[in-house]
Nucleic acid binder design. Structure first.
Length: 925
DNA sequence: CCTCTGCTGAGAGGA
């Protein structure tokens, strides 16, 4: 039987006499998650006491194949020969993490912190792996090499390599594979599968095997190994995949490692140490070792989040015993018996240890960073790791949900009806399935998703890309799978990139920059003030702030104040001054919006936000602009400036390096290619929706930076509650008010509509830009106001439909909202001019069933506007819940309207809160 | 109780 639950007590390791002789054992008490409230005792025998050494109260423990026994009238449990003991099984460790951990735990930490930079061996390795996959799929070697080298054009170009020399080297590596395959190893009976994604809920592991041959893992290594044996960490990697295959009821007993630099195929097989393929047996002992190693790693990660430890204050840093006593969860290297002298990470290791004053086996180089900077790294490291845990929770949905929960959840499409599996050119597959009824999900075209036969864990599953999501679902994969289910595949890329951004900014960052970030130095400005924008002083000030900043400038743009227009003018001005500019934002939509404004020389939304609506004469020519992003991420009309990865290395690199303006999401700023670029100025839009580390990813690439945002609108989207919730923009606006300017004239809302938001959020400073804007009224939208029902003739109105909240819906309110929309349309308002906003997706769906106009959540409405906005509040009784407590969300909802705003909600519920009471009084006036 | 977008998928090397 399997036992699982949080640990409530860990006993000491003792020796016991058994029929097999003296054996070590250790008792652990857990509170089983199912059944009785009483803790149960489990005795871990033999090598599992190693895991007991790493266990702590509060950790989750799983013991498989435990055996029940009786001791002094109580049922106790113990491990058996088949048992596995797993700590924190919900923490999904990457196989590559285990690989580096067995070399040295500190290497695991360093890889995570600093990321793997753009370098040639790694890029080449990736290409060889792709060629390997192609060969297994039957693609011609020459065609594959040419194609895969071309695909890596941009990265190779940045590294200064030319296609022919890379192709030569790849060909030599591939020849070793090809030769091995041809040697007769690939017999008729062989069944191959390339790039197999594996997730193991039992062992808390995930990863992707290069290939399976007859169910046995095959790992490709593009390096050389002249030893008779495979490298230990390589064996461990392959063994991890073997372990995870147990989840599929397969028990591989052999692993193969293919070292492609070992090209001496002509050597005698019997003596030939240089054969590329090395086999090894995967025995139970090795698998148990893998699990124990994973437990060590998972335990260390648990300590990061659950033991705050001393602040690294510079005094308690040197722990003589070699333990990272004051920084739990930060490996020192003493855990391993690796030799630092031979380690390629030795220098990095010593520098990081020196900077952060960490204990490390390799020793320290250089002076420690100031305590406040070390504290900063520590704080964000923890916050980001907490966010990683939340990502792991999303993986859990792949196996944990009951069918009913799954039907409610929108992270997967289930009960698909497979239609066809078609082989494409290059051996890939196109899977098609019919979607039942009106199933909706978070999946989007272009997303990477897990296609499966209905069971993504134990069944047949392939990672692929969604091509189409109409009535039929189309997915492209490497191997065919009966497409019955499609799941969102959670990605840790965002958290990984936040971590490297903190590393780059603090450990490698410029001192002057850090002085400003840590409030040790006031930002300065120099140079002449010029007139860039007539008729709007705040916008003009904002551009001047951006052009004269020697450190940073902050532009606070409330709703409708012409943020995008100002950004475009600021970039033009900077480019005119000879600066190279990075334009970044959190979402692809915001990047493309700002880029569009820059390219057509006006503001977005047809000049909304521009004082005169004139095109600028400084417009940046298209050939100087490059958009970095994926094909599906980038808007259609920006594809012409999107840089392709594929192509001649020299051409691609020149295209990027010669661009005066590079536009990308902050996530893309953390990519290996952009981390190699540098800019004079980084301008970040939607900065108030960015976590501090994400902002760092963009601004670390530039000497100076400009942040544009509005901290009175929506904050960053994060899963965990911690330091990531506050944006750098908000922090800096508070620290350096004199480095910021607020755009105070808005081009959207009527006087009546903007009054509440202006008073509540902007200290009354927000005002209509012109008399025409102020005078906007519902009368502008209809021939005769008398055609509207009396309550809708007002520009702002509150309607109480006397409904009842049911979960996240309110049916009666939804009906009333639909009736209001109908009344506007009947009076002659264009349905395209009406938008409906609700706090919950359930209510959005409820209203959407009753009307054809745009209905969406607040979050999705941010950044756009409509002449008529109807807001459904849903709540009755009490206004509890964070969705109402964060008033910024209400600010966004109310400020989408230009001419007419209708609030639909329960008057009594709204009056239960002072803020909403003021809103009701404003609407009723 | 909830809202939500990024990621080319992860992982690719070196005595």
């Amino acid at each position: 039987m399997n036992l699982r639950g949080p640990i409530v007590d860990v006993g000491g390791v003792r020796s016991a006499s058994t029929q097999y002789g003296e054996r070590d054992c250790c008792s652990i008490e857990i509170r089983p998650e199912d059944g009785a409230a009483d803790p149960v005792s489990i005795t871990l025998w033999g090598d599992w006491t190693h895991t007991a050494d790493h266990a702590a109260i509060g950790m989750e423990l799983l013991v498989t194949d435990a055996e029940a026994g009786e001791y002094r009238g109580e049922t106790t449990y113990s491990t058996t020969g088949d048992s596995a003991v797993v700590l924190e099984p919900d923490f999904l460790v990457d196989v590559t993490g285990i690989r580096s951990w067995v070399q040295c735990p500190r290497m695991y930490y360093l890889n995570k912190l600093s990321g793997i930079p753009l370098n040639y061996p790694v890029v080449k390795g990736t290409i060889v792996h792709e060629v390997f996959g192609d060969l297994l799929r039957g693609v011609d070697l020459e065609a594959s090499v040419a194609d895969r080298v071309a695909e890596a054009g941009l990265e190779l170009g940045i590294l200064g390599y030319d296609a022919a020399e890379v192709a030569d080297e790849v060909r030599r590596n591939a020849a070793a594979i090809d030769g091995w395959l041809a040697q007769g190893t690939l017999t008729d009976g062989d069944d191959w599968r390339s790039e197999y994604t594996l997730i193991s809920p039992t062992y808390g592991l995930k990863g992707r095997a290069d290939a399976l041959r007859r169910g046995m893992p095959v790992e490709l290594k593009t390096g050389k190994n002249t030893n008779r044996e495979p490298r230990f960490q390589d064996k461990i990697q392959a063994a991890c995949y073997g372990l995870m295959l147990a989840e599929h009821d397969q028990q591989p007993d052999t692993g193969t490692l293919l070292y492609t630099k070992n090209t001496a195929l002509d050597r005698n097989e019997a003596t030939g140490d240089l054969s590329p393929a090395k086999e090894f047996s995967i025995g139970d002992g090795l698998l148990d070792f893998v699990i124990r190693t994973r437990n060590e790693l998972a335990a260390m990660e648990w300590h990061v989040l659950n033991e705050p430890g001393d602040q690294p204050d510079g005094q308690s840093g040197d722990q003589p015993d070699g333990q990272s006593g004051d920084q739990p969860g930060i490996p020192t290297g003493h855990e391993a018996d690796a030799t630092c002298q031979y380690c390629f990470e030795q220098d990095t290791c010593m520098v990081v240890s020196g900077r952060l004053n960490q204990e490390s086996k390799a020793g320290q180089i250089g002076a420690p960073l100031p305590a406040e900077e070390r504290e900063y790294v520590d704080r964000f490291y923890r916050a980001i790791e907490a966010e990683r845990r939340e990502t792991h929770a999303e993986y859990r949905k792949l196996w944990e949900q009951s069918p009913a929960e799954r039907a409610d959840d929108d992270r997967a499409l289930i009960d698909l009806d497979p239609v066809s599996e078609t082989e494409l050119e290059g051996g890939r597959w196109r899977l098609e399935a019919r979607k039942p009824g009106n199933a909706v999900s978070k999946l989007r075209e272009g997303d990477v998703a897990l296609a499966s036969d209905g069971d993504p864990i134990a069944g047949d599953a392939e990672l692929g890309r969604i091509r189409s999501l109409g009535d039929t679902v189309v997915v492209e994969t490497d191997e065919p799978v009966p497409l019955r289910r499609l799941d969102v595949y959670p990605s840790e890329i965002s958290v990984d990139r936040m971590l490297t951004a903190v590393h780059d900014a603090i450990l490698k960052g410029d001192e002057r920059r850090k002085d400003v970030l840590f409030d040790r130095r006031e930002p300065t400005f120099s140079g002449p003030e010029r007139e860039w924008i007539a008729n709007n002083d705040a916008q003009n000030d904002a551009v001047n702030l951006a052009t004269t900043a020697e450190d940073l400038a902050l532009i606070h743009g409330p709703p409708g104040t012409g943020k995008t227009y100002t950004i475009a003018r600021a970039i033009e001005a900077l480019v005119a001054d000879g600066d190279r500019v990075l334009l970044a934002a959190f979402t692809n939509r915001a990047v493309d919006n700002a880029l569009a404004a820059l390219r057509d020389g006006t503001g977005a939304e047809g000049g909304d936000g521009s004082p005169d609506g004139d095109a600028s004469d400084l417009a940046v020519p298209d050939e100087d602009v490059v958009r970095v992003g994926t094909e599906t991420g980038v808007r259609g009309d920006m594809q012409d400036v999107r840089i392709r990865q594929r192509g001649d290395p020299t051409d691609r690199a020149r295209e990027l390096e010669s661009a005066g303006v590079v536009a990308a999401t902050t996530a893309a700023c953390g990519s290996r290619v952009l981390r190699e670029q540098s800019f004079d100025v980084a301008l970040v839009d939607e900065a108030s929706q960015l976590t501090e580390p994400s902002t760092l990813a963009a601004i670390s690439l530039a000497d100076r930076f400009v942040l544009v945002g509005d901290h009175e609108q929506l904050p960053p989207v994060v899963r965990a509650e911690n330091d990531l919730q506050r944006s750098l923009f908000e922090r800096l606006v508070e620290t350096y008010p004199e480095a910021s300017v607020m755009l105070d004239r808005q081009y959207r809302m009527s006087q009546r509509i903007q009054a509440f938001a202006s008073r509540e959020f902007y200290g009354g400073a927000l005002r209509p830009a012109t008399g025409d804007v102020a005078a906007r009224s519902v009368a502008d939208l209809v021939d005769d106001v008398a055609d509207l029902p009396p309550e809708l003739r007002r520009d702002v109105t509150l309607i109480d439909p006397d409904g009842t909240r049911d979960g996240n819906r309110n049916v009666r309110e939804a009906e009333r909202v639909a009736a209001i929309v109908d009344a506007y349309v009947a009076a002659g308002v264009d349905p395209d001019d009406i938008g409906v906003i609700a706090p919950f997706r359930a209510q959005v769906a409820e209203i959407g069933r009753r009307t054809d106009v745009t209905v969406d959540t607040v979050d999705r409405f941010q950044g756009s506007s409509k002449p008529v906005i109807v807001v459904s509040f849903v709540a009755t009784g009490e206004l509890d819940g964070p969705i109402f407590e964060d008033h910024r969300r209400t600010n966004v909802a109310l400020t989408r309207a230009k001419q007419a705003l209708v609030l639909v909600g329960d008057r009594a519920a709204l009056r239960s809160d002072p803020f909403y009471t003021r809103m009701v009084e404003w609407a009723d006036r």
